[in-house]
């Protein structure tokens, strides 16, 4: 019964949670650990599943909290002298087929999204990375569609300013 719910209603969120964890930790292996921990925490609260109306939002909250904890731990570790203990955020996205340029711009966009105040960071992530409609975003974040549009507008204005700066420095 609960195994079925896990497979039907919880595991399908895995890749979305992974991208959220990735944009916070900037590290593929750490992000995977975070999603696994998120799933295990969700499983440990399985007696409350019936009361959760918005599973995606609930899982994202758990995942964000765990990812932020993980990032803090990584920052502490990277200040240690022993390099074998390091899981440095800026050796991030350690996939095999990724160029230096790709890594740079992924780091830039993740840092930019996460530097936005909540819920702007969630709104722009759900729109620009997950490609969700205003209606679905409103449901997931318990906002109205109008609020979603306002937050998205503010977020994109910030991005516009940030990328104009990149343009000016770049030229």
């Amino acid at each position: 019964m609960q195994e079925k719910t896990l497979q039907r209603d919880i595991l399908p969120h895995r890749d979305k949670l992974y991208r959220l964890a990735l944009s916070i930790t900037l590290h593929t292996a750490e992000a995977e650990d975070v999603v696994q921990d998120t799933m295990m925490q969700a499983w440990n609260h399985r007696n409350e599943w019936d009361e959760i109306a918005n599973m995606g939002g609930w899982l994202s909250q758990i995942c964000r909290r765990l990812a932020l904890d993980r990032r803090q731990r990584m920052d502490r570790m990277s200040s240690l002298p022993d390099p074998t203990q390091q899981a440095d955020r800026h050796t991030a996205f350690t996939g095999s087929d990724i160029t230096f340029e790709q890594r740079e711009r992924l780091t830039t966009i993740c840092d930019m999204m996460e530097s936005l105040p909540p819920p702007q960071n969630d709104v722009i992530r759900l729109r620009d990375i997950e490609g969700m409609t205003y209606k679905d975003i409103a449901n997931e974040l318990s906002l109205t569609e109008e609020q979603v549009k306002v937050y998205l507008f503010r977020a994109r204005q910030r991005i516009k300013t940030a990328y104009s700066k990149i343009e000016n420095y770049g030229l």
């Binding site: 991208r19 990735l22 992924l106 990149i166």
Partner: peptide, 13 residues
């Protein structure tokens, strides 16, 4: 750098 990064991140799984 903005739109390509959005695209790449959305492909991560």
């Amino acid at each position: 750098s903005l739109f390509a990064a959005q695209h790449e991140l959305s492909q991560a799984h």
